[in-house]
Design a protein around this nucleic acid. Structure first.
Length: 260
DNA sequence: CCGGATGTTCACCT
DNA sequence: GAGGTGAACATCCG
């Protein structure tokens, strides 16, 4: 579930908790806070006031008057504030909430709580995470930043692999990358460094358009390509049968007729 | 039972 | 060093 769009929803949800104080910290899953220990995290956060919520790519940053709490959501993580969820449809359990899947929780002074809910356990809690390893955020990306993200030595990696490389560009995951390339009419296997200036401009516009559309529609899974990500699926633009390929280690669906 | 899944990281090649 | 591949992680779902 979580790509930039979902994490932006989580950020907005976390904003509602700003101003409250952490009464207690629960870390029932040691893996989620590794390599830190529960006692250390509790000591660092107990009594702290939440002062803000930011997002950098897929990383949520909950700021306090002490350390910043970084939350990474992995494949199935979601943020829950009390009984509020930022996303209706959790991937696992078809919308179910299961206490077993709460991997980390901040008990707040008003009786509410902010929790990382994550069946598959790829999510992580970080204290004062290093943001310098992340590229520019895809939602506020300038044309120059995109050009820099694509540039490199030689032809570079496949375009899609580069779009998903969080060190170069932060926020796009597998689904959004496919939607962006589909919308921009660019083949995922094109070398990142091979784009002409007008193609970079097109890609830049499409990243913004795809993200805004997904934010409006309700998630990374609401793209035009999504219903066609199956054998026999067809391009919504021209009816061509989509091609399925493995690029950058991820399953990629694209239209060989209009993506070049 | 098997394959696949919206992510990240690491070992091992080329 | 850069980049590719595959595996690992862990769990659920179709």
């Amino acid at each position: 579930m979580p790509e930039l769009v979902e994490v932006e929803y989580y950020r907005r949800l976390a904003t509602l908790a700003v101003g409250r104080t952490v009464d207690a910290v629960e870390a029932p899953d040691a893996r989620a806070i590794r390599p830190l220990a529960g006692a250390a995290v509790a000591a660092a956060l107990a009594g702290r006031r939440l002062t803000g919520a930011r997002r950098h790519g897929k990383l949520l940053l909950v700021e306090t008057d002490g350390p910043t709490v970084g939350l990474r959501f992995g494949m199935t993580g979601a943020l829950v504030l009390g009984d509020r969820r930022a996303v209706d449809r959790l991937r696992h359990g078809s919308g179910t909430y299961d206490e077993r899947w709460v991997r980390f929780r901040l008990r707040l002074d008003d009786g509410d709580d902010l929790a990382l809910h994550d069946p598959r356990r790829f999510g992580r809690v970080l204290l004062d995470p290093d943001e310098s390893v992340l590229g520019p955020d895809a939602l506020s990306l300038s044309l120059a930043e995109l050009a820099a993200a694509l540039a490199g030595h030689g032809a570079g990696p496949p375009l899609k692999a580069r779009l998903q490389d969080q060190r170069h560009l932060a926020g796009l995951g597998n689904l959004l990358s496919d939607e962006v390339l589909y919308g921009a009419g660019l083949a995922p296997g094109r070398r990142a460094g091979s784009l002409a200036p007008d193609e970079v401009r097109r890609l830049h516009r499409q990243i913004r358009a795809t993200l805004r559309q997904a934010l409006r529609r309700g998630g990374s899974h609401t793209g035009d390509l999504m219903p066609e990500r199956r054998l026999g699926g067809r391009c919504p633009k021209d009816g061509t049968e989509l091609r399925r390929e493995r690029i950058g280690g991820r399953t990629t669906w694209w239209c060989p007729a209009h993506q070049h």
